[in-house]
């Protein structure tokens, strides 16, 4: 009798654990929008020899739990040996702002803009930490997306814009399938095709189309920059040029060593008639 009682209690214990495990919701976190990522340096505005190495990562992270999805814009700042969390992050087109937190207390804030130097982006701006003001410079570290991530973007674009998705494919060749007529099946087909053939011109065109409307994502800006370095007449270059031009207007001296494609695009934006 006693053994039976103990066994029953033990079984209840095991059953609760099993139920909790089976009922546990699957949580998946994925970087969705890449803001600023890189290593750099912060230099005190009051003493140029007071500087510190910094390392930053700011992103929109998509958290999926069962059917629910939410995007958290958050970041991490390493200032020397100290680590801070970035909250209330705003990832704009070529800009990032955030509040700096240590545990639950706000200890500063930062605001960085993206500038192009050579074939890379440099984040430059100001950082206030524990009452001290710094100028901050961060060399952006580009992420090379895997084919599956590239294809995921195409899938999203075709899901949200089936008509445009079809038009983009048609503009550069035959359509892989008709996203409007076949809907879900076609989107999956395009995704599978582009995952296996990332260099197909239709897949490239679809990625470019997606990126034109996601300029807040640094990997999208890099994708368009890659195109513009070879062909500055591409329409997407003007869209990206506008982004960089807004930052250049705040600090015109930056343009002294801008890459050739950006100077060409900027001239076109600033005086469209002369360029024509």
């Amino acid at each position: 009798m006693k053994k039976l009682f103990v066994l029953t209690i033990a079984l209840v214990f095991v059953a609760i654990l099993v139920v909790q495990q089976s009922g546990a919701q699957q949580v998946n976190a994925r970087i969705w929008t890449r803001g600023a990522f890189g290593n750099g340096i912060a230099i005190s505005q009051s003493d140029s020899m007071d500087f510190e190495l910094i390392r930053i990562g700011v992103a929109g992270v998509k958290i999926t739990m069962d059917e629910n999805e939410t995007i958290r814009k958050i970041g991490i700042l390493h200032f020397g040996e100290d680590k801070y969390r970035l909250r209330n992050a705003v990832i704009g087109n070529g800009s990032v702002t955030a509040d700096i937190y240590y545990n639950a207390s706000q200890v500063g804030s930062l605001a960085l803009d993206a500038y192009v130097k050579g074939d890379r982006e440099i984040w430059a701006g100001t950082l206030t930490l524990n009452g001290e003001n710094y100028n901050a410079y961060v060399i952006h570290a580009s992420k090379i997306l895997r084919p599956v991530e590239k294809a995921r973007r195409i899938h999203e674009y075709c899901k949200n814009n089936p008509l445009r998705c079809r038009a983009v494919m048609k503009a550069v060749g035959n359509i892989i399938c008709d996203p409007e007529a076949e809907n879900v099946t076609c989107r999956d087909k395009i995704k599978t095709f582009c995952e296996s053939n990332p260099d197909d011109r239709r897949c490239k065109a679809l990625r470019l189309a997606y990126c034109r409307t996601h300029l807040e994502d640094s990997t999208c800006r890099a994708e368009i920059r890659g195109v513009c370095e070879n062909n500055a007449t591409e329409n997407a270059c003007d869209v990206l040029g506008e982004v960089y031009n807004r930052n250049i207007e705040k600090n015109p001296q930056v343009v002294r060593k801008a890459p050739r494609w950006l100077i060409t695009v900027r001239n076109r934006i600033l005086s469209p008639q002369a360029a024509a």
Partner: peptide
């Protein structure tokens, strides 16, 4: 969770 994803990246 989001911070950990950023840290991993």
């Amino acid at each position: 969770i989001a911070s950990q994803a950023v840290e991993d990246e």
